[in-house]
Amino acid sequence: MEPIPLSVFEAAVQVAGSALHYKSSLKQLLRNCGVSENGAERYSDLTKYQIFRNTWGDLDRDGVSGRKVQHRLVTALANLDKPDPNVPDVAAGRRSIAELRRLAQQAQLLVTPADLARAERRKAAAAEAADSTSKREQLAALNDAFQILHRQADKQRRGYDLEKLLSALFRWAELDYHGSYKTETDQIDGAITLDSFTYLIEARWRDEVAMATDLAAFADKVERRIDATRGLFISMAGFRPAAVDRYRQAKENRLVLFDGADLAWVLEGRFDFTDALRAKVRAASIQGDPYISVNRL
């Protein structure tokens, strides 16, 4: 990065001294542009002109990093809309800003607010694209792990690994997640929070479908907690139809049901998990059905 031309520096000194009324305003500008707290306060007893000159000299000694701050200082001062109305000579302050702006543009140093806004938008878009790519890669890795689980011969190990996979999925979805825990009466596979509701998790990977007794036992855990608690039952093999019918006909139901096909749709990236959960809750509320497949939502 090239040094600031002397003419631009002198014009910047004039703006610092004539367009800013308070020393505190100048020191805040120095901080905003990257001057350290100690650097901004070092020359507080001097005039605004002297504070700026001495701070600039310190930045000269910092090499490339100091020049970057100097460039930001020139940009900030040249982009001032107008002088502080309390300065002794507002017209002189206005002229000093105009002169700095002219010289900075001539030296191709000036970054306008519009340029800064465009740069920020480009930076944000690039970060969003990178984050999106990273999220897709993370989800693909989770799906790969899911496929490996299908080949897991140790059923107990498979169930444990399913819990770990779901934990990673909930964190990927940026949900407030609490891992598995025990109380005096219950074993809970975890809990997530979404839209002010807490969902207790029951996750199982067995060869047989979940029966009415399984659903009833989990529903009992949920119902013994406050009304803002719901239950998310994930059964890879699905659910016995007659067992689900009881909850379709129930006066009050706080369970939402996922099966292996639902989970596959989410892990393949066809349906966002939080969107899927919200859609299932909406279907349970409107249609009274807690077990509508994700691919039908």
Rank of each mutant, 00 (worst) to 15 (best):
A129N: 14
K48I: 04
S196M: 09
S96Q: 04
V69S: 01
A11Q: 01
N38T: 01
K135V: 07
R278M: 12
D81P: 02
L277E: 02
E10S: 09
L215M: 12
S44Q: 15
S44K: 13
S96L: 03
E163P: 02
A228P: 00
N38M: 04
A12N: 03
S44N: 09
S132M: 15
S36L: 05
E128Q: 13
T47V: 09
R118W: 08
K182G: 08
A191E: 02
D154G: 11
A114L: 14
R270N: 14
D89Y: 10
A129C: 11
A203V: 09
L165V: 08
D89P: 09
I188T: 13
G63N: 12
Q147I: 10
A279D: 06
I148G: 05
R118E: 04
T75K: 02
A216R: 10
L6D: 11
G66C: 09
M1W: 08
L116W: 10
L277Q: 03
G159T: 00
D45N: 10
H178N: 12
Q105T: 15
R42M: 10
F170E: 01
G231A: 12
Y22P: 00
Q187D: 07
T55F: 01
A173M: 02
L59C: 04
L215E: 04
V222K: 00
L109H: 05
E252W: 06
D189K: 03
R122V: 15
G57V: 04
A217C: 06
G231Q: 02
T183F: 11
V111R: 07
Q147C: 12
N295S: 09
P85V: 12
Y160W: 04
G269H: 03
A127K: 15
A203S: 13
V256L: 04
D275V: 13
D214F: 00
E163K: 10
G93C: 09
R204S: 08
L20W: 06
A173R: 06
V256A: 01
S44E: 15
A12R: 01
P113F: 14
L297V: 07
L80N: 05
S96E: 00
Q70S: 07
G288D: 13
L142A: 06
V294Y: 00
P83M: 09
R94T: 09
Y22F: 11
A140V: 05
L297Y: 06
K251A: 13
L255G: 01
L142R: 04
K27T: 06
L267S: 00
D62K: 07
A76N: 02
L20M: 15
E223T: 06
